[in-house]
């Protein structure tokens, strides 16, 4: 594989990372909460999709009609019944609670499904590719990237143009005054988490159609999403997409040097950005 092809692949991979990152970023933006189990919930969603597909025979993409609402419901419930009690001045409880969720999901999934690698079969789209200017571009990665752009555009619209987006921002600014104005901040937090979980479900199906996964695949997804957020700059969703692309390119170029260097190259770029531009490559102007 040539350098040009590696870069194109990296860009497209970045789209997937941006989807991992979008939900993480949204929740942090609204309630300053980092869901350590973000990646594990993505893996949970992948297993749910697997079950839906094997029970109904639906195409994996069609299974999203069930998996997205189901995950959104889980997210809303998690926020209202568990995380809500832990939000406050102290950062520790929500981190530790989501960390606990991560450990529980990993071990529960391996008890239920064994630690064997699983995969969602999406049919011929997995291997189809287009020839553009002498480069071979996979249809699935291209579709993933297009979905990433669509998700980020949609989230931007929701956040900056819609009624619930205004409530998100107001609650993030000043929860007490938001309540006086009539916003139920607990419900708003629940909705933010539901939205984040819905996006996770999409990420899960795209991930599972692209590569195999097992109960312990979650932490790496959290880390890639997190790196995309920090590289791109906090509070800027398009920046997060750019961050994902930078990370994706770093990984595919790293893999060119040596397969064992793929992930490491991404981490190193993350630390270089942190050292040189601690607010990320595209910090929000304000």
């Amino acid at each position: 594989m040539g350098i040009a092809e590696a870069i194109v692949q990296g860009v497209l991979l970045g789209g997937l990372y941006a989807i991992f990152a979008a939900g993480l970023s949204l929740v942090f933006g609204v309630m300053r909460l980092v869901n350590i189990a973000h990646g594990d919930f993505i893996v949970l969603a992948a297993y749910i999709a697997l079950m839906v597909v094997s029970l109904t025979g639906l195409h994996p993409f069609a299974s999203l009609l069930i998996v997205v609402p189901l995950m959104a419901l889980i997210g809303y419930g998690l926020q209202r019944f568990v995380l809500e009690r832990t939000l406050g001045e102290d950062l520790l409880p929500p981190i530790l609670v989501t960390f606990g969720c991560a450990v529980i999901i990993q071990n529960a999934l391996s008890a239920l499904f064994s630690t064997d690698a699983q995969r969602l079969s999406a049919g011929s789209i997995e291997t189809d590719s287009l020839q553009v200017a002498g480069l071979s571009i996979g249809v699935l990665p291209l579709l993933t990237f297009a979905i990433a752009v669509a998700i980020i555009a949609a989230l931007e619209f929701v956040f900056f143009r819609s009624r619930i987006g205004r409530a998100f921002r107001a609650t993030s600014d000043d929860p007490e005054t938001a309540q006086i104005v009539g916003v139920s901040t607990k419900h708003v937090f629940g909705l933010a988490m539901a939205l984040s979980f819905g996006v996770m479900a999409i990420a899960a199906v795209l991930l599972a159609a692209r590569s195999s996964f097992d109960p312990f695949s979650g932490p790496a997804r959290l880390i890639y999403g997190f790196e995309a957020v920090i590289i791109g700059g906090l509070g800027n969703l398009w920046g997060t997409l750019a961050g994902g692309i930078v990370l994706g390119i770093a990984q595919t170029l790293g893999a060119q040097i040596s397969p064992s260097f793929q992930i490491l190259a991404g981490h190193l770029v993350f630390f270089v950005v942190l050292a040189l531009k601690p607010r990320g490559l595209f910090p929000r102007m304000d």
Partner: peptide, 27 residues
């Protein structure tokens, strides 16, 4: 480096640091 990460992102940052060290030794 890690102290530059805001709030709870520090936690994830320490994780990346550990993964990085592990990958270096594995290589």
């Amino acid at each position: 480096l890690l102290f530059r990460l805001e709030g709870a992102y520090f936690a994830v940052g320490t994780w990346v640091a550990a993964e990085t060290v592990a990958l270096i030794f594995a290589a």
